[in-house]
Design a protein around this nucleic acid. Structure first.
Lengths: 156, 156
DNA sequence: CAATCCGTTCAGACTTGACTGAACGTCAAC
DNA sequence: GTTGACGTTCAGTCAAGTCTGAACGGATTG
Protein backbone atom coordinates (compact mmCIF):
# COMPACT_ATOMS: atom_id res chain seq x y z
CA UNK A 1 0.00 0.00 0.00
CA UNK A 2 1.58 3.29 -1.04
CA UNK A 3 1.37 6.44 0.99
CA UNK A 4 -1.46 7.88 -1.04
CA UNK A 5 -3.68 4.87 -0.48
CA UNK A 6 -2.75 4.66 3.15
CA UNK A 7 -3.78 8.24 3.74
CA UNK A 8 -7.10 7.69 2.02
CA UNK A 9 -7.69 4.52 3.99
CA UNK A 10 -6.84 6.35 7.20
CA UNK A 11 -9.30 9.11 6.32
CA UNK A 12 -12.00 6.55 5.65
CA UNK A 13 -11.29 4.87 8.96
CA UNK A 14 -11.48 8.17 10.82
CA UNK A 15 -14.82 9.02 9.23
CA UNK A 16 -16.15 5.58 10.00
CA UNK A 17 -15.22 5.82 13.65
CA UNK A 18 -16.69 9.30 13.61
CA UNK A 19 -20.04 7.91 12.53
CA UNK A 20 -20.01 5.09 15.04
CA UNK A 21 -19.16 7.39 17.91
CA UNK A 22 -21.84 9.76 16.71
CA UNK A 23 -24.37 6.93 16.83
CA UNK A 24 -23.35 6.51 20.44
CA UNK A 25 -24.52 9.99 21.25
CA UNK A 26 -21.33 12.03 21.01
CA UNK A 27 -20.52 14.50 18.27
CA UNK A 28 -18.99 13.58 14.97
CA UNK A 29 -15.95 15.70 15.76
CA UNK A 30 -15.41 13.77 18.99
CA UNK A 31 -15.55 10.62 16.93
CA UNK A 32 -13.04 11.89 14.42
CA UNK A 33 -10.64 12.93 17.16
CA UNK A 34 -10.96 9.49 18.65
CA UNK A 35 -10.45 7.81 15.29
CA UNK A 36 -7.43 9.94 14.51
CA UNK A 37 -5.80 9.13 17.83
CA UNK A 38 -6.64 5.45 17.46
CA UNK A 39 -4.39 5.40 14.40
CA UNK A 40 -1.51 7.10 16.13
CA UNK A 41 0.88 5.82 18.76
CA UNK A 42 1.88 9.34 19.73
CA UNK A 43 0.09 11.99 21.71
CA UNK A 44 -1.11 15.04 19.79
CA UNK A 45 -1.54 18.66 20.69
CA UNK A 46 -4.82 20.49 20.46
CA UNK A 47 -3.51 22.32 17.41
CA UNK A 48 -2.48 19.07 15.74
CA UNK A 49 -5.95 17.68 16.25
CA UNK A 50 -7.60 20.84 14.95
CA UNK A 51 -5.66 20.55 11.74
CA UNK A 52 -6.17 16.78 11.44
CA UNK A 53 -9.95 16.77 11.78
CA UNK A 54 -10.52 20.22 10.28
CA UNK A 55 -12.32 21.76 13.20
CA UNK A 56 -11.91 24.88 15.29
CA UNK A 57 -9.75 24.98 18.39
CA UNK A 58 -12.89 25.58 20.41
CA UNK A 59 -14.51 22.37 19.26
CA UNK A 60 -11.35 20.37 19.83
CA UNK A 61 -11.00 21.69 23.35
CA UNK A 62 -14.64 20.89 24.09
CA UNK A 63 -14.59 17.40 22.67
CA UNK A 64 -11.21 16.29 23.98
CA UNK A 65 -12.25 17.18 27.50
CA UNK A 66 -15.46 15.27 27.06
CA UNK A 67 -13.61 12.22 25.77
CA UNK A 68 -11.18 12.49 28.63
CA UNK A 69 -14.02 12.60 31.14
CA UNK A 70 -15.45 9.45 29.56
CA UNK A 71 -12.11 7.71 29.96
CA UNK A 72 -11.50 7.37 26.23
CA UNK A 73 -8.54 9.75 26.09
CA UNK A 74 -5.64 10.58 28.33
CA UNK A 75 -4.11 13.99 28.77
CA UNK A 76 -0.34 14.06 28.61
CA UNK A 77 1.93 16.93 29.55
CA UNK A 78 5.63 17.45 28.99
CA UNK A 79 8.13 19.39 31.04
CA UNK A 80 9.11 22.61 29.33
CA UNK A 81 6.05 22.59 27.11
CA UNK A 82 2.89 24.40 28.04
CA UNK A 83 0.80 22.51 25.59
CA UNK A 84 -1.48 19.62 26.39
CA UNK A 85 -1.30 16.41 24.42
CA UNK A 86 -3.95 13.79 24.04
CA UNK A 87 -3.63 10.10 23.36
CA UNK A 88 -5.82 7.02 23.55
CA UNK A 89 -6.24 5.97 27.16
CA UNK A 90 -5.15 2.65 28.55
CA UNK A 91 -8.61 2.00 29.85
CA UNK A 92 -10.22 2.91 26.55
CA UNK A 93 -11.31 -0.58 25.64
CA UNK A 94 -12.77 -1.32 29.02
CA UNK A 95 -14.59 2.00 29.10
CA UNK A 96 -16.15 1.60 25.67
CA UNK A 97 -17.52 -1.79 26.52
CA UNK A 98 -18.59 -0.70 29.97
CA UNK A 99 -20.59 2.16 28.49
CA UNK A 100 -22.41 -0.17 26.16
CA UNK A 101 -23.08 -2.70 28.86
CA UNK A 102 -24.47 0.18 30.87
CA UNK A 103 -26.99 0.76 28.11
CA UNK A 104 -28.29 -2.78 28.48
CA UNK A 105 -28.54 -2.27 32.22
CA UNK A 106 -30.50 0.94 31.72
CA UNK A 107 -33.02 -0.80 29.53
CA UNK A 108 -33.29 -3.64 32.01
CA UNK A 109 -34.08 -1.18 34.80
CA UNK A 110 -36.74 0.54 32.76
CA UNK A 111 -38.42 -2.76 31.97
CA UNK A 112 -38.28 -3.79 35.61
CA UNK A 113 -40.01 -0.55 36.55
CA UNK A 114 -42.58 -1.25 33.86
CA UNK A 115 -43.39 -4.67 35.20
CA UNK A 116 -44.00 -3.09 38.61
CA UNK A 117 -46.34 -0.55 37.08
CA UNK A 118 -48.29 -2.78 34.70
CA UNK A 119 -51.76 -3.79 35.78
CA UNK A 120 -52.17 -6.48 33.16
CA UNK A 121 -50.83 -9.93 33.98
CA UNK A 122 -49.79 -10.71 30.41
CA UNK A 123 -47.89 -7.45 30.21
CA UNK A 124 -46.15 -8.12 33.50
CA UNK A 125 -45.13 -11.53 32.22
CA UNK A 126 -43.71 -10.08 29.04
CA UNK A 127 -41.72 -7.44 30.87
CA UNK A 128 -40.49 -9.91 33.45
CA UNK A 129 -39.26 -12.18 30.72
CA UNK A 130 -37.40 -9.24 29.26
CA UNK A 131 -35.80 -8.48 32.61
CA UNK A 132 -34.80 -12.09 33.15
CA UNK A 133 -33.32 -12.29 29.71
CA UNK A 134 -31.28 -9.17 30.26
CA UNK A 135 -30.13 -10.35 33.66
CA UNK A 136 -28.83 -13.43 31.94
CA UNK A 137 -27.21 -11.46 29.16
CA UNK A 138 -25.71 -8.87 31.48
CA UNK A 139 -24.13 -11.42 33.74
CA UNK A 140 -22.51 -13.26 30.85
CA UNK A 141 -21.29 -10.02 29.34
CA UNK A 142 -19.81 -8.80 32.58
CA UNK A 143 -18.24 -12.15 33.23
CA UNK A 144 -16.77 -12.22 29.75
CA UNK A 145 -15.40 -8.75 30.21
CA UNK A 146 -13.89 -9.52 33.61
CA UNK A 147 -12.33 -12.74 32.44
CA UNK A 148 -10.84 -11.22 29.33
CA UNK A 149 -9.52 -8.17 31.13
CA UNK A 150 -7.93 -10.27 33.84
CA UNK A 151 -6.36 -12.55 31.25
CA UNK A 152 -4.88 -9.64 29.31
CA UNK A 153 -3.92 -7.24 32.02
CA UNK A 154 -6.43 -4.62 31.01
CA UNK A 155 -7.66 -2.30 33.72
CA UNK A 156 -11.27 -1.42 33.97
CA UNK B 1 -51.41 1.96 43.91
CA UNK B 2 -54.47 4.00 42.94
CA UNK B 3 -55.40 4.85 39.39
CA UNK B 4 -53.93 8.33 39.55
CA UNK B 5 -50.53 7.07 40.59
CA UNK B 6 -50.62 4.26 38.12
CA UNK B 7 -51.29 6.62 35.24
CA UNK B 8 -48.44 8.85 36.29
CA UNK B 9 -46.13 5.88 36.63
CA UNK B 10 -47.17 4.66 33.19
CA UNK B 11 -46.46 8.09 31.72
CA UNK B 12 -43.03 8.12 33.32
CA UNK B 13 -42.33 4.66 31.95
CA UNK B 14 -43.36 5.70 28.45
CA UNK B 15 -41.10 8.75 28.55
CA UNK B 16 -38.23 6.69 29.84
CA UNK B 17 -38.54 4.15 27.07
CA UNK B 18 -38.88 7.06 24.68
CA UNK B 19 -35.50 8.37 25.76
CA UNK B 20 -33.80 4.99 25.61
CA UNK B 21 -35.11 4.28 22.14
CA UNK B 22 -34.07 7.77 21.10
CA UNK B 23 -30.53 7.02 22.29
CA UNK B 24 -30.63 4.04 19.98
CA UNK B 25 -31.06 6.31 16.99
CA UNK B 26 -34.83 6.32 16.51
CA UNK B 27 -37.12 9.23 17.21
CA UNK B 28 -38.59 9.98 20.61
CA UNK B 29 -42.06 9.47 19.20
CA UNK B 30 -41.13 5.98 18.02
CA UNK B 31 -39.90 5.30 21.52
CA UNK B 32 -43.10 6.53 23.12
CA UNK B 33 -45.21 4.42 20.80
CA UNK B 34 -43.10 1.44 21.73
CA UNK B 35 -43.34 2.24 25.43
CA UNK B 36 -47.08 2.69 25.26
CA UNK B 37 -47.59 -0.63 23.50
CA UNK B 38 -45.22 -2.36 25.92
CA UNK B 39 -47.68 -1.53 28.70
CA UNK B 40 -50.68 -2.83 26.83
CA UNK B 41 -51.73 -6.35 26.02
CA UNK B 42 -54.07 -5.19 23.30
CA UNK B 43 -53.39 -3.92 19.82
CA UNK B 44 -54.06 -0.23 19.18
CA UNK B 45 -55.20 1.73 16.17
CA UNK B 46 -53.24 4.55 14.65
CA UNK B 47 -55.71 7.02 16.08
CA UNK B 48 -55.40 5.49 19.55
CA UNK B 49 -51.66 5.88 19.41
CA UNK B 50 -51.87 9.43 18.15
CA UNK B 51 -53.97 10.37 21.13
CA UNK B 52 -51.85 8.39 23.60
CA UNK B 53 -48.49 9.87 22.66
CA UNK B 54 -49.80 13.28 21.58
CA UNK B 55 -48.46 13.25 18.05
CA UNK B 56 -49.90 13.75 14.60
CA UNK B 57 -51.34 10.91 12.56
CA UNK B 58 -48.54 11.45 10.08
CA UNK B 59 -45.85 10.85 12.66
CA UNK B 60 -47.57 7.78 14.04
CA UNK B 61 -47.92 6.27 10.58
CA UNK B 62 -44.27 6.95 9.85
CA UNK B 63 -42.91 5.59 13.11
CA UNK B 64 -45.15 2.55 13.41
CA UNK B 65 -44.08 1.38 9.98
CA UNK B 66 -40.46 1.91 10.91
CA UNK B 67 -40.88 -0.05 14.13
CA UNK B 68 -42.63 -2.78 12.20
CA UNK B 69 -39.78 -2.97 9.70
CA UNK B 70 -37.36 -3.33 12.59
CA UNK B 71 -39.40 -6.20 13.96
CA UNK B 72 -40.39 -4.39 17.14
CA UNK B 73 -44.10 -4.12 16.32
CA UNK B 74 -46.64 -6.30 14.62
CA UNK B 75 -49.45 -5.09 12.44
CA UNK B 76 -52.81 -6.68 13.17
CA UNK B 77 -55.93 -6.44 11.07
CA UNK B 78 -59.51 -7.48 11.79
CA UNK B 79 -62.21 -8.64 9.44
CA UNK B 80 -64.81 -5.96 8.85
CA UNK B 81 -62.52 -3.22 10.08
CA UNK B 82 -60.36 -1.24 7.72
CA UNK B 83 -58.17 0.08 10.47
CA UNK B 84 -54.73 -1.23 11.26
CA UNK B 85 -53.75 -2.13 14.79
CA UNK B 86 -50.30 -2.36 16.22
CA UNK B 87 -48.98 -4.44 19.07
CA UNK B 88 -45.63 -5.53 20.43
CA UNK B 89 -44.16 -8.23 18.21
CA UNK B 90 -43.31 -11.72 19.40
CA UNK B 91 -39.78 -11.30 18.17
CA UNK B 92 -39.39 -7.95 19.85
CA UNK B 93 -36.95 -9.08 22.48
CA UNK B 94 -34.73 -10.96 20.07
CA UNK B 95 -34.71 -8.06 17.64
CA UNK B 96 -33.77 -5.47 20.22
CA UNK B 97 -30.83 -7.49 21.40
CA UNK B 98 -29.83 -8.42 17.87
CA UNK B 99 -29.71 -4.76 16.90
CA UNK B 100 -27.45 -3.94 19.80
CA UNK B 101 -25.20 -6.89 19.13
CA UNK B 102 -24.98 -5.63 15.57
CA UNK B 103 -23.56 -2.39 16.92
CA UNK B 104 -20.74 -4.27 18.60
CA UNK B 105 -20.08 -6.12 15.36
CA UNK B 106 -19.95 -2.84 13.43
CA UNK B 107 -17.35 -1.45 15.77
CA UNK B 108 -15.36 -4.65 15.58
CA UNK B 109 -15.30 -4.42 11.78
CA UNK B 110 -14.15 -0.84 11.82
CA UNK B 111 -11.32 -1.67 14.20
CA UNK B 112 -10.30 -4.65 12.07
CA UNK B 113 -10.10 -2.36 9.06
CA UNK B 114 -8.04 0.05 11.13
CA UNK B 115 -5.53 -2.59 12.08
CA UNK B 116 -5.10 -3.39 8.40
CA UNK B 117 -4.49 0.25 7.61
CA UNK B 118 -2.22 1.20 10.48
CA UNK B 119 1.47 1.49 9.70
CA UNK B 120 2.60 1.57 13.30
CA UNK B 121 3.16 -1.76 15.03
CA UNK B 122 1.98 -0.54 18.43
CA UNK B 123 -1.22 0.79 16.88
CA UNK B 124 -1.83 -2.46 15.06
CA UNK B 125 -1.37 -4.33 18.32
CA UNK B 126 -3.85 -2.12 20.11
CA UNK B 127 -6.48 -2.46 17.41
CA UNK B 128 -5.95 -6.20 17.13
CA UNK B 129 -6.47 -6.55 20.86
CA UNK B 130 -9.69 -4.65 20.49
CA UNK B 131 -10.84 -6.93 17.69
CA UNK B 132 -9.95 -10.06 19.65
CA UNK B 133 -11.77 -8.79 22.68
CA UNK B 134 -14.88 -8.07 20.67
CA UNK B 135 -14.72 -11.43 18.97
CA UNK B 136 -14.73 -12.96 22.40
CA UNK B 137 -17.54 -10.77 23.63
CA UNK B 138 -19.63 -11.21 20.50
CA UNK B 139 -19.42 -14.96 20.60
CA UNK B 140 -20.44 -15.13 24.25
CA UNK B 141 -23.30 -12.71 23.65
CA UNK B 142 -24.59 -14.61 20.67
CA UNK B 143 -24.27 -17.86 22.49
CA UNK B 144 -26.09 -16.46 25.50
CA UNK B 145 -28.85 -15.19 23.27
CA UNK B 146 -29.21 -18.47 21.39
CA UNK B 147 -29.21 -20.54 24.54
CA UNK B 148 -31.77 -18.40 26.28
CA UNK B 149 -34.02 -18.16 23.27
CA UNK B 150 -33.94 -21.91 22.71
CA UNK B 151 -34.67 -22.53 26.38
CA UNK B 152 -37.66 -20.19 26.37
CA UNK B 153 -39.18 -20.77 22.98
CA UNK B 154 -38.38 -17.31 21.70
CA UNK B 155 -37.92 -16.91 17.98
CA UNK B 156 -35.12 -14.83 16.60
C1' DC C 1 5.40 45.63 32.28
C1' DA C 2 4.43 44.24 27.52
C1' DA C 3 4.19 40.55 24.39
C1' DT C 4 3.05 36.01 23.35
C1' DC C 5 1.27 31.51 23.66
C1' DC C 6 -2.25 28.26 25.29
C1' DG C 7 -6.64 26.41 26.54
C1' DT C 8 -11.36 27.59 27.70
C1' DT C 9 -15.77 29.71 27.27
C1' DC C 10 -19.69 31.60 25.08
C1' DA C 11 -22.89 34.09 22.00
C1' DG C 12 -24.40 33.64 17.61
C1' DA C 13 -24.73 31.36 12.92
C1' DC C 14 -25.91 27.47 10.96
C1' DT C 15 -27.33 22.69 10.02
C1' DT C 16 -29.98 18.88 10.74
C1' DG C 17 -33.84 16.36 11.13
C1' DA C 18 -38.18 15.74 13.82
C1' DC C 19 -42.79 16.95 13.51
C1' DT C 20 -47.00 18.77 11.71
C1' DG C 21 -50.94 19.37 8.83
C1' DA C 22 -52.87 19.33 4.54
C1' DA C 23 -53.38 16.93 0.32
C1' DC C 24 -53.81 12.61 -1.71
C1' DG C 25 -55.03 7.70 -2.89
C1' DT C 26 -57.78 3.81 -1.66
C1' DC C 27 -61.48 1.25 -0.28
C1' DA C 28 -66.18 0.26 1.39
C1' DA C 29 -70.81 1.51 2.07
C1' DC C 30 -74.77 3.60 0.54
C1' DG D 1 -71.26 8.44 -8.17
C1' DT D 2 -70.78 10.33 -3.72
C1' DT D 3 -69.49 10.26 0.85
C1' DG D 4 -66.75 9.19 4.67
C1' DA D 5 -63.14 6.66 7.09
C1' DC D 6 -58.32 5.31 6.77
C1' DG D 7 -53.39 5.29 6.05
C1' DT D 8 -49.62 7.47 3.56
C1' DT D 9 -46.79 11.04 1.77
C1' DC D 10 -44.58 15.35 1.49
C1' DA D 11 -43.47 20.24 1.67
C1' DG D 12 -42.73 23.43 5.08
C1' DT D 13 -41.89 24.87 9.91
C1' DC D 14 -39.52 24.83 13.86
C1' DA D 15 -36.46 23.48 17.56
C1' DA D 16 -32.27 21.27 19.11
C1' DG D 17 -27.83 21.07 19.18
C1' DT D 18 -23.31 21.44 16.66
C1' DC D 19 -19.67 24.36 15.25
C1' DT D 20 -17.21 28.52 14.82
C1' DG D 21 -14.60 32.54 15.96
C1' DA D 22 -13.73 36.03 18.97
C1' DA D 23 -12.97 37.34 23.56
C1' DC D 24 -11.04 36.06 27.74
C1' DG D 25 -7.94 34.39 31.60
C1' DG D 26 -3.78 32.56 33.08
C1' DA D 27 0.94 31.46 32.57
C1' DT D 28 5.52 32.31 30.69
C1' DT D 29 9.16 34.92 28.63
C1' DG D 30 11.90 38.86 27.62
Amino acid sequence: MDEQNRDEAAARFIERIGQIVEQDGLTRIAGRIFGYLLLSSEAHSLEDLAKAVQASKGSISQETRLLERLGALERVTRAGDRRVFYQIGDRMMGRMVALRIERFAQLREAMAEGSRVADDAAVRARLSAFVDFHDHLLSTMREAQDRWCRGHGIET
